[in-house]
Structure formats: C-alpha cells, structure tokens
Design a protein around this nucleic acid. Sequence first.
RNA 1: GCGGAUGUGGCGGAACUGGCAGACGCGCCGGACUUAGAAUCCGGUGUCCUUGUGACGUAUGGGUUCAAGUCCCUUCAUCCGCACCA
Length: 822
Amino acid sequence: MEKYNPQEIEPKWQKIWDEPSYYKADIDKSRPKSYVLSMLPYPSGNLHCGHLRNYAIGDIFVRYRSMNGFNVLSPMGFDAMGLPAEGAAIKHGIRPDVWTYKNIENMTRQLKSMGLYYDWDREVITCHPSYYKFTQWLFELFYKRGLAYRKEASVNWCDTCGTVLANEQVIDGKCWRCDHEVHKKNLAQWFLKITDYADELLKDLDKLKGWPNRVKVMQENWIGRSEGAEFSLEIDGRAEKIPVYTTRPDTIFGITFMALAVEHPLIEKLIAGKPNEEEIRRFITETRNMSDMERTSSESEKKGIFTGEYAINPVNGKKVPIWITNYVLYEYGTGAVMGVPSHDERDWMFAKKYGLEIILVIDNPSAPLKLEEMDNAYTEPGIMINSGEFNGMENEKAKGAIVDWLEAKKIGARKINYKLRDWLISRQRYWGAPIPVIYCDHCGEVLVPEEDLPVELPDDVEFKQGALSPLSTSKKFNDVKCPKCGRPARRETDTMDTFICSSWYYLRYTDPHNGKLPFDRDKVNYWSPVDQYIGGIEHAILHLLYSRFFTKVLRDAELLDYDEPFTNLLTQGMVIKDGAKMSKSLGNVVSPEEIISKYGADTARLFILFAAPVERDLDWSDQGVEGSFRFLNRVWRIVGIFEDAIKSGVDEYDVETLNDEEKNLRRILHKTMKKVTEDLRDRFAFNTAISSLMELVNAMHTFQDKKINPDLAREVTKNLLKMLAPFVPHITAELWSKFFEGDIHKQSWVKFDEAAIVEDTVEIVVQINGKVREHIKVATGLTKAELEKLAPTIPRVQELTAGKNVMKIIAVPNKLINVVVK
RNA sequence: GCGGAUGUGGCGGAACUGGCAGACGCGCCGGACUUAGAAUCCGGUGUCCUUGUGACGUAUGGGUUCAAGUCCCUUCAUCCGCACCA
C-alpha cells in the first residue's frame, strides 16, 4: 500500500463532503434528534487554536451521535457584526461588509479544511440583512411586550471603542473587548428589561443539570438576588421621606445614622443654604469623579460628610444624623442605607472614623459582647437586645417578625432586590443592526412598520470615532417620514449590541431561510433546545445569560415551547503554549492552518483531543502533534500489513478457530470497543478513548510479522476504523473505502460482545497486611468465599504468615486477596 | 474577605464504584535495520538504597479503613469567579 499522505486524501474527501446533500439535516420524527452546537465565531479572518479545539470537540459529538442513529443538526455560522470591521474601515478605508465577507470566505475555507460535519445550507451570517431583519423584528417584539424602552441614564462609556457598554461587558472597570478603562456618561439609551426575568433566570438555573456548576454560580452571583425589606424614614422637620432597603431588618433598632449615595436626589434640598454647602458640594464632585473601579472597591476608605439634617427611626423615634457617603451605591436598592455600625462591617468602619454612636442590638449568646472591647462589627447570629418588644428573640426569627411589624404599621414591606440591571443595547457604532425606531415630533417614538424591515445599513457614511453613530452622517438613512403621520422625522442612529444577534442565532439555524418569521414554531420545537452546546467559559455570563433571557421572552410570546435554550453545556479549556495564553506579543501563536497543511486535519484534531481532557486547559506541544501524526501512520501501516488478510476474511466466523494470541487480540478489541463507547457516551473523555485506541493499535502491531487469521484481521480493522472515524474522518474514510462497502460515516457504531472480553483466568493480587506480596492466576469469577478458602493454600502466604496469627482474610472477586496477620 | 476548582514521574496526563499508582503519549536511554543518517521496529524509563520476595512515593500534616490519589479534618500553593449590593 502507498504511504499515508494526508495532503492528498483530505482534500479528496472534503470535496465529497462539500456536496450540499451530504450533511443535510431534515426533520425525521422516527429518530431521536440531537442538536449539537459550537459557539459561532466572530469572523476575525483566521481560525485560531481555540476554534480548532471547539469545533473538533463538537465534531466528535456529532459524528458519534450520527453513527448511533440520531438525526443530527450541526450548523455553523458567523457572528459577523462588531467593532473590528468598523476599525478596518476607519484605519484602512475598507468597507465593513467587504472586510467581513472576505474574512468569512477565508474562515469557511479553513473550517472546511478541518473536515467538519456541518450542514452549510443552514449557515447564518448575522450581518446579512436577511438575518438582521429578524433581529430588528425581535426588537420590535420586545418593544411591543414592554421589554424595550429608552431612558436617560448614567451609562458605561468606552472611549477607545467609541460606544456605551452593558454592565456585563465591563470587566473590573474595563471594557471587555479592548481592556480600556470605562467611565460614566449620561445618555438617552435603549434598554431591554432583563430584570423582569431576573427571578426566573435565577430559579431555572436548577433545571440546567447539564451545565457546569461554575457557570451557574457565576450567573447566580451576577443576578444577585437578596431578600429584605424596604421602609422609609421621615426627615426631622421636613415633608420628605427617605426610603431604604435592608436585608437586616433585625438590626433596625441599631440605626445610628443614615447614609446617602452622592447621587441621591434629596441631597440638593437637604444641603441648600447650609453653612458648609460648598464643602459638601466639593465632596460630592470628588466622589463622582472617582472611577467606578475605585468607588466600588471594598478596599477604598469610607468617607462621608454630615448634611446637618436628621432622620427619624420609625421603630423607636430616635433622631439620627444624615450623612452623604462614598460607599453607598445609587444604582442599588434606594441609594440610601440605614447605618447600623454594631452589626455591619462597613457601617462600623464609617462610624469609627467619624465618631458616630454605636448601639448593640444583637448579642452573642455564648460570650456577651462589650462595645468597648469590640474592634469590628458583630455579624454572627445571636439574641436581640435593645430592640423593644423583640428583645430575647433569635435574630433570624426577628427578621421576619420585624418585617411583619413594619408591614402591619404600613411603614415598610418585604422586598426582593437584584444586582442585575437592565441590558443596555444601544451602540454608537455603524456595524450592527440598526434599532428600528423613528422619532417624530408629533408622534414621538414610532416603530418602523414590520413590512419596512429590515432597516438596512446605508453606505454613505463617514467612519469617525465619536459620541454619535456614523449612521448620523448618512443622508439616505436619515431622510425619513414618520410612519404614522407622514411628517418629516428622524431615525434612531444607534445600532444594537452584537450580543443581541447572538442571542437567537441558534434558533435561526432550525429554519434559516424563513423570510416571514425568525423561525417556524414547529421547526424550532423539533430541533431545539440545543442538546449539546460547546464553547468557552468567557461567555459564562454574557452570551449565555442573554440567550436564556431571549428564550424565555420568545416562549412567553409563544414562538417556542421550552424554557431553556441549552440543555447541556460543555465549556472547553483554553489552548495555551509555554504556560501562557497564545498571543502575538508573546510570539507563541500556533496557526491551525500551518499545522493542517503540514500534518493534515486528522493529526491536528487527534492531537487536540488527545492532549488534555476537554474542560481543562491544553498545553500545545509540537512534539505531541508529531506523536499524533506518528500514530496515524501506525494505523495506516498496520492496515496495510493486514491488507491481504482483510480482503480474504469474512464478517461472520467461528471465533473458536482463533489461536490464543488471536483470541487475546480479539479480547483487546472488544475491551476497547466497550471503553471507547463508554468514554464517548458517558464522559466526553476523548483523551482516554484515544489512548485505548492506541493500545489496540499497539496490540495489532504484535502481528506485524506474524500470520493473522483473516477473519479476525477484518473484524479488528473494521471496528478500529469505525471507532476512529469521529476523531479522524479523512484517514478512516480512505482506509474504509479500500476494504469495506459504503461510507464509514454512515455506518452504525460498534457493538461490543461482553463474552469476548471475559478471560478464563484472571490475575489477582495477594496482599499481606495490605502490601502486595504475590500475583496469582485464578479462574475468573471465583466467589469471595472460594477466594477466602484458597488464600491459606498459597505458598507465599504460608511462607509469610508462618508463626503469626491470621486475623482476617478479605477477598474481592477478580481483584485481590488480603490476609491480615499479627 | 467570600465562593469554586486544581495539586500525581522530566512533561501532557491515566487510575470511573476505596482494591497492583503512573495507562496512553511526549521526552530520554539502549538495541535492531542502515555505509551513514532520517524514518521505522523492539526493549527500558517514579525515587532511594544495602539491588531485595526491599523501602519510600499522588502538595502538607493528621484521621477513618484489612486497604486511601480516591473518604473526613488541617495547612499550604496555584488558578478562576465574586467582592462596599446594605
């Protein structure tokens, strides 16, 4: 047989698989469906190793499930809106669409060179008007359901990107994309009301049994639900009240001051005309000028300034000073906090700094507290004191009792709060889906009528960085009449966050050519939810939270019938090299394209799946790649050596005709079939599946200079190729075509024979006091009792236990005997 | 600070239910083939010593057990997430 030459065979098979009908997915209710999806890439221009890993993992699922009779949906597309395209326009004067489509073309070629199983007929490109028409349609749906609204707000602004960002897109005070510091700006912006779904998004995390815990915990933290109470304090001598939110109503008798956020709207009234008004204003300005990072760090010093006004504690009538502080956040709760220094760490620090009063209201039952001996707040459970009728109660019980009391007196009520904020979706950029809204002086905000969608991106724009979208420079775009009254009006010139595009693409795959609706309800309900989703952990909150939100809204709009979009989620680890993430600046970037052209896609796929478990980070090793290439050569060679035997063998034969060595090989084969099946089906343990396939190939090589039973050679080769097929589709297709009928990728998965795995005898370990002292061969399946009886007859046991008392004999069938002596 | 994950040879990793630690691969060493090399094939490869039917060994120290990488507690290290959310 000729040499293994991936450069020749891979393009040959890829051409066959590129036929549109080859991987076509169609609804077939007679078979179970399986929707396997990898996160779609941004078309940056080139595939990187992370993509390679992501799609290789997905391809194993797809091919394995396909061979197991599932009706598989495996689509691919491009998340093609976004800033880099616009950056290319600004820097090099290339039109964003031209730049994007050129990149898509190149990346599609690279994807195809990986030998992946995709139904390309379902390709989704989010920047195509046929797609963003429905992104806009969905925006309108949200609007009609009261879930999209425009408001003026203090928002995150990134100077480098020239646009606002959602809270989820600010990481440690920095822009998620360019890593530059973000600052606040007041702008009128569009929001989606994700907070309406906060509770369900939190609760339904419990339904996601197939998600990594880590991701669920991150989402839980992000949603940040807390239960407490809201009540108001009157201001001494004024009509206004200050509402506060607390999760510790049990400490309400311990209030000794009030703390307001610097943005609190009441401040103006409170400080007007005060002798130190200027000083107070200076404090407010200073605090507002601090970066978000500084302001929200628990490390920063707590500072404040007294307003000269007092509030009245509704439970005991106590007058407490009202302070303006730097540590109360305006965005959370009511922007005002009751100060209980005795039982809150931050209030403690603040009170100590400014010499404010501290009153204990919870005592430590095991060691009574003395204020003068305390150097921080007491935040443990305890017994209520100094709290009127609640004295003596356990504080946990008092929480409820006090809220009941507040509710009965109509002073306050139970309240649930979330850290989650509404999703800011306006972007002052060009390369996104235009927000389909028209502003009319007479009619106000008007949706673009459905029949006028999509609102297309114009090409007469100037690309410049600034606070306004480039769309505002387009004459064509802005020349519009009000759809309601026909008078001249103007368009919204902001576009939508690209995360909107990716929040529903997995649904579009189920019905990608639908021109009337985003997708057909029957189709979406047949294929989705996604059975297996694969992608990086970096989307733990962003994309995965937004998509869950979208799914729930679409369910409520009766466009689909389920609650959660991704039943099982696999977060693959990063690909690193020399201990660091691959990056141009470190010069440790590996190009998948080069690897593929040197060794072939099969080698690249095999290496990346073998080198580490899927969830863990993978250390790229050029030598490891060589090793995978060597293995494929070994496969090729041994099949070549078996060539004549395979051809003369038959599929049905009497295994009793095999000699001992051959029986041994057959046993290894069936053991491997069992192991690989279990690894793929139950554990996603692709690395160990491959290692056992290597063992099988090693075992085959013991016959390289020996005659082998042709029927066995046929059986082994056939099953080896089937098992390898999901991992290395090209070489297996090629070898299969030389010896067997049909297409290997349409064969059914291997079936192991449990009987072939069992040996007549098994080697067991003999231990004395837990230490291995002998290995003996015994008949397979000897019972515990039989082994216990056998133990004293073993010469080595007799030798080592002579003169000692045998206390106990432990036997585990087919495993070991342990003799305990004294 | 809080929450989570991880820690096993020179390296990537295996050991799934407590039952021979180190599968498989890389690297390294030796051998075969070769004029030579490459490739290939075969064998070896945790540490230590007194080379044995030996001792030790899965971050640390302890515990449970006939038996612990695996279960429980302690400490440490690394990574990730959250972090003034009242």
